[in-house]
């Protein structure tokens, strides 16, 4: 394929549109899912199954006034939601959805996604600090300490997978799991490492994704009963909308990463209908799990949250890293 200006612009537009549409419709999915779990209908008036709800919500949000609290740092206050959305969109550039559907495959793809995920936490810090509100500040400190704590087991688990694949290229990681669905990294015995603890690694990674995206049961940064609304307390209008969209875009990226690292990407069992839809299926099943967990688990405490990471997940993931290294040497 020749690289033309048209291709570049098209790739950028598709990445932004994919992130935005997903974010908008996941809000709808979340509300419908919550309603199902709580035995009520949810948004079902606008359009079939309420599918017109997200664009209408968008229009409503954009029509509202963006109030900037007195004494707030205006520049940072406005920059923070943009900073939240930017890394989320950037990460879509390197995610391979199938053999051919990838904007730019990089040989350090894994690293790129984690680098931009790290950028996201700065936006939380600035949002909390610049709104000059003590609850927002508390929330952002909580959210960042949580992100920093859970980044470690997440990265260690990722290194385990990178070691098995021998590459940081996301495409390569998927190729290494191809062949049979028993080669997926989540299944312990037939994979390259024959590591019995791989399902545990998958669980650690999934838990860390939940925590990194500030989702329940780890949504201490948005505990309504303690902190009003969290770091976006002072945000109205599309500023709030952007934070919301960034959260859902991050969920999509987390689920994409889980699919690629552990569930074999677009690989399919028994060679049934190979194609991009397997990736999409796995992706949205994971996202459905996110929503399911959010509405069925109660929130933990901040100490419980940090203890889980530092005392359980980090030692376990380190142990698994060593075990995998040993097994790779043996086999």
């Amino acid at each position: 394929m020749r690289l033309t200006l048209f291709n570049v612009v098209a790739a950028v537009i598709i990445a932004i549109a994919f992130a935005a549409v997903n974010a908008a419709y996941l809000v709808w999915a979340e509300r419908r899912g919550a309603a199902r779990i709580q035995r009520r209908p949810g948004p079902n008036i606008n359009g079939p199954f309420g599918l017109l709800q997200p664009p209408l919500d968008g229009i409503k949000l954009m029509a509202k006034q963006l109030t900037i609290p007195g004494g707030a740092d205006k520049v940072l206050f406005i920059a923070a939601p943009v900073l939240a959305m930017f890394p989320a969109i950037m990460s879509f550039v390197t995610i391979p959805f199938s053999e051919n559907i990838v904007a730019k495959n990089m040989n350090v793809g894994v690293l790129m996604i984690f680098a931009f995920a790290a950028l996201g936490s700065t936006s939380l810090l600035f949002a909390g600090w610049s709104s000059r509100n003590k609850y927002a500040m508390m929330a952002s400190i909580r959210a960042v300490s949580q992100t920093v704590a859970y980044e470690i087991p997440m990265l260690i688990t990722t290194i385990t997978v990178v070691m098995i694949a021998g590459s940081m290229d996301l495409m390569e990681i998927v190729h290494q799991q191809s062949g049979s669905f028993l080669h997926w990294n989540i299944f312990p015995l037939l994979g390259k490492s024959h590591n019995i603890l791989m399902p545990l690694s998958f669980l650690i990674f999934f838990t860390c994704t939940l925590a990194e995206t500030n989702r329940s049961p780890f949504d201490l940064g948005e505990a309504e009963s303690e902190l009003v609304a969290g770091f976006h307390t002072e945000y109205g209008s599309m500023g709030f909308g952007l934070f919301f969209m960034a959260e859902y875009a991050n969920i999509v990226i987390g689920s994409c990463m889980t699919t690629i690292l552990f569930l074999g990407g677009w690989g399919c069992p028994f060679g049934l209908f190979p194609g991009v839809w397997w990736f999409i299926l796995k992706l949205y099943l994971l996202i459905a799990t996110f929503i399911w967990i959010r509405w069925t688990f109660p929130r933990t405490t901040i100490y419980g949250l940090l203890n889980l990471s530092w005392k359980i997940l980090i030692p376990l993931s380190l142990f698994n890293l060593l075990l995998t290294a040993g097994l790779l040497k043996v086999f």
């Binding site: 690293l111 680098a115 931009f116 790290a118 700065t122």
Partner: peptide, 17 residues
Amino acid sequence: MMQILIYVGAIAVTIAF
């Protein structure tokens, strides 16, 4: 990528914190 991961993700966040 290491520049972003280490300098922005770790060092700048620590300074801001």
